[in-house]
Design a protein around this nucleic acid. Sequence first.
DNA 1: AAAAAAC
Length: 743
Amino acid sequence: MPKNKKPRGGRPSANFEPRYGAKKTSFHERHNGGPARDERGGRADAGDRRSAPAAGGYDRRPGSRSAGHRGYRPEEAESGAPKRRWSASERAGRDEARGIRNRAESGRRDAPHRRDERPRFDERAERPRFGDRAGSGRFDDRARRDDRAGQRPTGPGTYRDDRGGDRPRFDRDDRPRRDDRSGGSQRQGFRDNDHRDGGRPRFNDRGNDRPRFDSERGGDRPRYNDRGNDRPRFDRDDRPRRDDRSGDRGRTNDRAGERPERSYDADRARRAFDRDRTQRSFEGGRERPSTGGAYRTERPRRDERPRRDERPTRNDWNAKPKAAFEPTDDVVHERLEAKSVAAVEVDGVTFGDLGLGSNIVETLANMGAATPFPIQAASIPAVLGGRDVLARGRTGSGKTIAFGAPLVERVLQSQAGKRREFGRSPRAIILAPTRELALQIDRTIQPIARSVGLFTTQIYGGVPQGRQVGALKKGVDIVIGTPGRVEDLINQGKLDLSDCRIAVLDEADHMCELGFVEPVQRILRHTAEGSQKLLFSATLDREVAALVDEFLVDPAVYEVAGEDQESSTIEHRVLVIEHRDKADILTSLVDRDGKTLVFARTRAYADMLAEQFDDAGIPAVSLHGDLNQAKRTRNLERLTSGRVNVLVATDVAARGIHVDDIDLVVQADAPDEYKTYLHRSGRTGRAGRSGRVVTLITRQRQRRMTELLDRAEIDAPFENARLDDDVIEEIAGRVPTAATLTA
DNA sequence: AAAAAAC
């Protein structure tokens, strides 16, 4: 939604970001090349349906309902020949001439080559058509809340409940009133919350029997993110030992009591440092070799290893090879300059408690975020307190709101009493690695900002800059964008960040990768002196050190304890296949009812797969950097809206993109990096929903894949699979029938 | 090696 001035009336505007569930706009009619009946004709028994025009398909609409308008078309004309300005072959020719393949519009699908060779996929004729499915059309009420957090509007406690926890919610009535608590918490906001000593339940307690009121840790407990080295650790002495508590959860905390110095006790963080360790050779060569080597060969193969419940806990598991390297952890933390606060748990805490104003709280509630997720409860007070923050919360844990809501609050406070001047320069900037992500962040933050009278605008490439510049001229408060265009506009003198007091890097570790980090650094240098920096990512690691060293001052580091596979809602599997079966297995995997996201390594392969699925009668679109922005946005929206159920993407979609209801992620090509694996798989299982990830590899790749999964600390069974194996039916969610066809 | 990010 590239607009910072959305018409209040909600009239859909002809921009690149159609509102979900909204009417199609004339923009789309124009760009869909007319009725586009083929693409919407439904996935079912492709041949028949396609030959029947439109067949009462989806909400196909004429461009305008009234005869006076330019785009007016009478309804009945939709099915008639006159609308087909291009014959199928002409369209195909046009598309080829443009070098852009748009299967949906070309006539190619009318002459599908391989369809006859694939009788097995024809059963889908019995399935409900898209328009009939329960899933479609429901986005009207979700459009506003499809933030990355994906918090569900089911009221308080949802987060825990989703994870199968039947742990009783903290009874808020038991809780002392805020004012009763110690520490003289006079005002609301960061300081106040900082003193979450007294009666406040411990955030990072987990388990049912945790002590709710730990009064002996009363008012003299230092504040949560106090600075200074003498700060007693939040989770040190006074904390019940892990074994005293019930939980088998939150194992990441296991060592907190034993090793108080190691504050950044996220395994993921440590893991990320492993690589560095190899390079830095702190350990004199006793670290894991990167390929093969002693460590690997000593380990049992995956399927020979004990089952998870018999296995040592993750820390123990890791401790074996790493035992000798423990001191390094501290070195790493110093390098990060981070004194971390362990994870928090948030039962009974409200957004208001955290210091957000009532308008923002209400807006969050309307977006489906009734109560804060852990990462939000951790970072919101710190952001409001003006600290630099590094935060790691796994995919789908609500990071956008974690930085967005307090950012809005802070911008608001900084402007209190001042008029919003025409042409004012922005007070905050949020940078994201992809345009889609920038759009999505704005979709989450804009309503929050608007609820308190602040304006946002998106600054990203691939679209004409005029509109963006126009918004800046009028004056915006929060800029959300991608580095390229942001820097471009800065250099053109059209974007002035000198008054920008807060800068956020989403997917911060990615933004620090080669080729990304330099523009980011230059942009950050344009922000106001001493501006507050917030770095968020699901895989935040030392890769951000370059930025931390230059830009962050005594950052608070947050993470959420217990974010391991045990507490995850994602099921991981690896299929070991023959390469010649790959195409058919992929088609079989995506031939299903739920939404499926397929990752491919290259743009060309993504296109090829989307086309292959389409040809097999499974409507699919692709998303990658070779598409123009309009197509990118549109194709993603097609998945979001349920118009197609299959999206084939490159890693442009690996990070941050939130689409409700993706229940299967297929990695047609295995990723090379464990972080990529984590981010890709994080497109499913969001906000506590369940999801499944399947990765296809060939036999030769097994070892590499095992290593990657080790790094990701994911335990996934490797299964040999052939085309007609039940395992594929099972993963796809089709019930294996006795009549499983054998060609 | 690929992908992303500016025109």
